[in-house]
Nucleic acid binder design. Structure first.
Lengths: 145, 145
DNA sequence: ATATATTAGGTGTGTTTTGCACGTAATCAA
DNA sequence: TTGATTACGTGCAAAACACACCTAATATAT
């Protein structure tokens, strides 16, 4: 059974992993973000407040590359960085106001898409899906680190 | 409700998307593959037989970059490419025998991991999850362009 | 409390990867 | 058949990258 679970999961993850739609949308929104910057932006939005090392690890890049990519997002006004209050070595990173706005637009688009995708699902099926996904997400979050 | 669905989905997708986990994964399997090559390898394994353009689109890269990355995998003996039989323009790409072996190792590791993660789930809950994930995967696959 | 070790991350530099522009061959469409 | 489109390889300049090294801040040990 686990192998079937994996199969379904891989399919679902791969589907949502295709950022081409998001990227096309971003261009429409008039924001100029390349693939690398976009991925970093999304990750910051999800993990904020974060720091250089954590982001580097998550994205599988060196801290130097990641630091310079963050510089670029900061110059574009999408993220804000400051020294952490309790540890001055740490560059604390979060979305700026305009970054949050862009994130909201992306989230709204995602919700639109899922709404559309599940349009012929019954409410019961959706509730069942939500319950199971929450259970899984909860279990996975406890595995972290 | 859809926004809660999105939230859970994003969390799950992000979990499986973390490059650092992939890397630990790769090391366990004893293979020397960088993040980019690994992602391409997995995608080829999932989509085979595929071609340069499709892979480029899925991964959000240019066809030229993708073509050169495929060269590298081919030189490592993990994939085989040949001209498509019905359209000689197309470079048809699939895993080699040793690529398939590696894929099996990776799949086995993944199953181990999920087994471990869900160790304290009841059989009933697992079945429910599988059923819901299959339903979702099926729905999403019908959206593919 | 002071000395030592570790951690976070910025910077210079050489290497690798990338996208773009362009070219060629194959296929499609008129 | 002829012009358009598609698939993809290649030269090249720009971007991204990892590495080595550095400083400053924090943690640990004595």
């Amino acid at each position: 059974m686990e192998s079937e679970l994996i199969q379904a999961l891989v399919q679902i993850v791969s589907f949502f992993n295709r950022t081409d739609r998001d990227q096309a949308f971003i261009k429409n929104a008039g924001v100029d973000l390349e693939a690398t910057s976009f991925q970093l932006f999304v990750t910051i939005g999800r993990m904020q407040p974060s720091n250089v090392s954590d982001l580097a690890n998550i994205l599988g890049k060196s801290h130097s590359s990641t630091s310079r990519q963050i510089d670029k997002l900061e110059k574009k006004g999408l993220v804000i960085t400051k020294n952490d209050e309790t540890d001055a070595r740490i560059r604390s990173i979060r979305l700026s106001e305009s970054g949050e706005k862009l994130k909201q637009v992306l989230d709204a688009t995602r919700i639109d898409n899922i709404n559309n995708a599940l349009s012929d699902w019954s409410t019961k099926d959706k509730k069942s899906l939500l319950s199971n996904l929450n259970h899984l997400a909860d279990t996975l979050s406890k595995l972290d680190n």
